[in-house]
Nucleic acid binder design. Structure first.
Length: 226
DNA sequence: GCGACAG
DNA sequence: ATCTTGTCGC
């Protein structure tokens, strides 16, 4: 199998450069209770096709959660995947897709972590700063931190901590299904992020915004290849 | 020094 | 992320 596989060794020079840029962006992150009146909720996701990346944004009405709009952008991917630096690989194309939206969302749910990151700048936080928009992260796997397993019933949650800080919540959004890792990204707080994930996770593990973005990524993939 | 490692 | 078969349950 592949449980002992190693990731390709990242270039030290590149890591150093990205770490510096990350620090500058991190200082701009604002964690607070959002003041918006939530009407439009967006979700985004990216998929890859060879050397290119396809990013999708969907906008849903809240609390109805009906699709209002969906857009996509297809472009080249410049950087390799390095754990902890995912945003540098995906955000450029995500920003391009975002700019095609006709409706400006009040909040964006991102597939990945917010501050539940070794340096508190996951892709949700970085994208939030780049777009100056409230964001929150919804990841399927932990990147950093420790946690207990939440109870098996939907709604159960346990804290994700790192270096003594509460950086996210491990939330069971569906009975007996692996939990999701939720954390505020930018212009957002832990309580609101946690509440919104549970409010938008209907009959699936992933909340509707992220789930639909993932769905449309698959749909647009065929279109993008031509 | 030995693992872990978002998408 | 992507590569991949069959299989379990609502």
């Amino acid at each position: 199998m592949a449980w002992h596989q190693q990731l390709p060794p990242p270039d030290p020079q590149l890591v150093k450069q990205l770490t510096e840029q990350q620090e500058i962006l991190r200082q701009q992150v604002v964690l607070q209770k959002p003041d918006f009146d939530l009407k439009l909720l967006a979700g985004c996701d990216s998929s890859f096709i060879g050397e290119n990346i396809l990013s999708v944004f969907v906008v849903l009405s809240f609390p109805e959660l009906k699709l209002v709009e969906s857009v996509w952008h297809y472009g080249p991917v410049e950087l390799p995947y390095i754990p902890g630096f995912l945003a540098f690989r995906e955000s450029p194309n995500l920003v391009n897709a975002y700019q095609k939206l006709q409706h400006e969302p009040d909040l964006i749910m991102v597939d990945g972590h917010g501050i539940a990151h070794p340096r508190r700048l996951g892709i949700a936080s970085q994208l939030g700063v780049l777009l100056n928009k409230p964001t929150m992260g919804v990841a399927k796997k932990v990147l950093t931190g420790k946690h207990e397993e939440p109870a098996s019933e939907k709604g159960s949650l346990t804290p994700l901590t790192h270096r003594g800080e509460h950086i996210g919540n491990v939330i069971r959004t569906k009975d007996k299904v692996k939990p999701v890792f939720v954390s505020p990204g930018h212009l957002m707080d832990m309580e609101t992020a946690t509440s919104l994930v549970l409010q938008t996770a209907l009959k699936h593990k992933l909340p509707e915004p992220t789930r639909l973005a993932d769905h449309y990524a698959e749909v647009y993939k065929k279109e993008a290849q031509q």
